[in-house]
Design a protein around this nucleic acid. Structure first.
Lengths: 330, 330
DNA sequence: CATATTAGCTGAACCGATTTAGCTTATGAA
DNA sequence: TTCATAAGCTAAATCGGTTCAGCTAATATG
């Protein structure tokens, strides 16, 4: 059923019907009677406006786009959930697309989404060259980068404070009794890896426990790296460290794989701190503290940035959120 | 940049430009030269067609919709990931919306999505009355229900075989050495809960170990229920069962919360079987078998059902997938 | 009674593409 | 030379709404 059919049934013009259905009746002085008649018929026939036609004419789409490297990552799923909810409450739908961490795919997605006239693109981006995003902004589509970005970008960004979080996380880990400390981190060429290590080091120096460092190991943020770093440590020391800092959730998984395979049980007195979080850490039978991104807050800020952009209130928002430190000492 | 501008620049008509950009040049005998000129200019100016306009005219949208109760659920996130990828490879984008398990929200979503002219709705549905989905189908939008549905529906469905999976999962659990068996399940008024228990019972009877059942407890599939059922068991027996069957992942979580709080360590010789799966189970320091839905296969079948519907090849597809049983004996 | 104002509604343009019948011009055949 | 055919392209209708200037009839005002 099209607007025209509905209008005919109600004995009014397309214009009148449209005006009523969009709630502009007052402004156009449409009489109560006519309104009721139209609305009732619309309900009766389950009339729903064609969003393509409406959007084309009034140049909106009520669509937002979210680009993620991978929807399966627990954190990104959480982010999606919150963004979707906020979008929905605000009358938008969310197109979620994955780049699979591939630059070309991401660029293709941005172009396609631009053509779809999404009203904003929110992206956990993998690219190093933002020109495709600048293109989008030039065409009037606001862009917000979450979680990561190349320094110097002119786009809106929202990230979490790695340095501060690493420091606090380390401090939490140190509140237990002293002992050998191991640090397993990622590629030091990357900003976030470096920041995490800096935070860790700072906390150690300030606490005066720097001499307890047994190992500092930088590899990369893969499960395999975690496994191999723990293997090395074990070969060297014939035991686990009393305190362990893993720079990512994946590293933690690697370490767990190793201990599951080679250890009878995890020592309960271990103080383990890791970046990345999951409710599952609450269930592990030993102490593991974590630093989690505040994805809900991130989603909220993203929507606020959008509001600001829609109203052209602010030129650029660069937001740094804190991470939540979760202390799980048993 | 609109098609018209591009056409003007290239010195051709809108029609010609459109024909070329859509790859119909051959059919319309547009010369090589003209094609090249148009395509080059399009690339140079990063021309992207307005999908609303194109879709309106040619009545397509290249949009698929996915409705989920909750995006955070690990299984649904996995399903989304696979569906998104398949959709993307087939030239579609995916609108993901959550119903938050609320009937009204789900119905509202279906209506909105209908108006958006999505080309299909794939739904993990919470409603008991499918009329809003039937409405959608009447308007030419195919619907596929995943994971759950009320019996008697005329919609396409894809689910997993709970009965068979429970049976196999129980058999896996029984391969260890005999001992006290506990079953923690959900509300027996629900089909899936009943089916799981039936499968469990059948396996026990066939194996002749039915007399080892220490407890059968039906409550509901909540974390709290898991906690409380294990608490009861522990109070009664002062120990854990040798074999434990939990009917859902959430129940498993509840049990883990209890053991983490009240037990020194999880006995390694426990044979635990649970519905629901996560990579995290690979990391737990004891044996926990699981039955996981084949979400990737589910996504694949869903897309195939869509193909069939688009071609009007089949009237109705009702698919039952097996669950994958993962044996994790340490 | 004439004119101004208001209430209530509508016609027609428009959004930006796709689609198809058909118009030129060039080429070939008779 | 003349007509048929083919090559290459375009004009105009169309999709289904929104938007706004403006029309008509009714009421108010002087």
């Amino acid at each position: 059923m099209k607007l025209e059919d509905l209008a005919r049934l109600a004995g009014v013009s397309k214009s009148t019907a449209s005006i009523i259905l969009n709630g502009h009746a007052e402004r156009y002085r449409i009489s109560e009677k006519t309104c009721e008649r139209v609305l009732e018929l619309a309900k009766k026939h389950h009339y729903v406006a064609n969003a393509q036609a409406a959007g084309l004419r009034s140049s909106n789409s009520k669509l937002l786009a979210l680009i993620l490297p991978d929807l399966l990552h627990h954190g990104f799923a959480e982010l999606s959930k919150h963004l979707e909810r906020l979008a929905r409450k605000a009358g938008y739908q969310l197109i979620i697309s994955c780049s699979d961490d591939e630059t070309e795919m991401e660029e293709k997605l941005v172009r396609t989404l631009t053509g779809r006239k999404v009203e904003a693109i929110i992206s956990v981006s993998t690219v190093t060259d933002y020109s495709v995003y600048y293109q989008a902004e030039k065409r009037g589509i606001p862009v917000i980068l979450l979680d990561r970005f190349q320094s110097g970008t002119k786009l809106d960004t929202i990230i979490s404070d790695d340095h501060q979080a690493a420091k606090e996380l380390t401090q939490t880990m140190l509140t237990g009794r002293p002992g050998a400390i191991a640090y397993f981190g990622g590629n030091q060429a990357l900003d976030n890896c470096r920041l995490r290590f800096q935070g860790f080091s700072e906390a150690l120096e300030e606490s005066g426990e720097a001499e307890n460092i047994a190992t500092v190991h930088h590899l990369d943020y893969s499960v395999e790296a975690g496994y191999s770093m723990m293997k090395d440590y074990f070969r060297q020391h014939q035991s686990l460290p009393e305190k362990l800092f893993t720079g990512s959730f994946t590293l933690m998984e690697g370490v767990l794989q190793f201990t599951r395979k080679h250890l009878d049980k995890m020592p309960e007195q271990i103080d383990w701190a890791t970046f990345g979080d999951s409710y599952i850490l609450d269930l592990l039978p030993f102490t593991i503290h974590s630093a989690r991104q505040q994805y809900e807050e991130m989603a909220k800020q993203a929507m606020e940035s959008l509001d600001a952009k829609f109203d052209k209130r602010e030129y650029q928002r660069q937001i740094v959120l804190s991470r939540e430190i979760i202390c799980r000492r048993i």
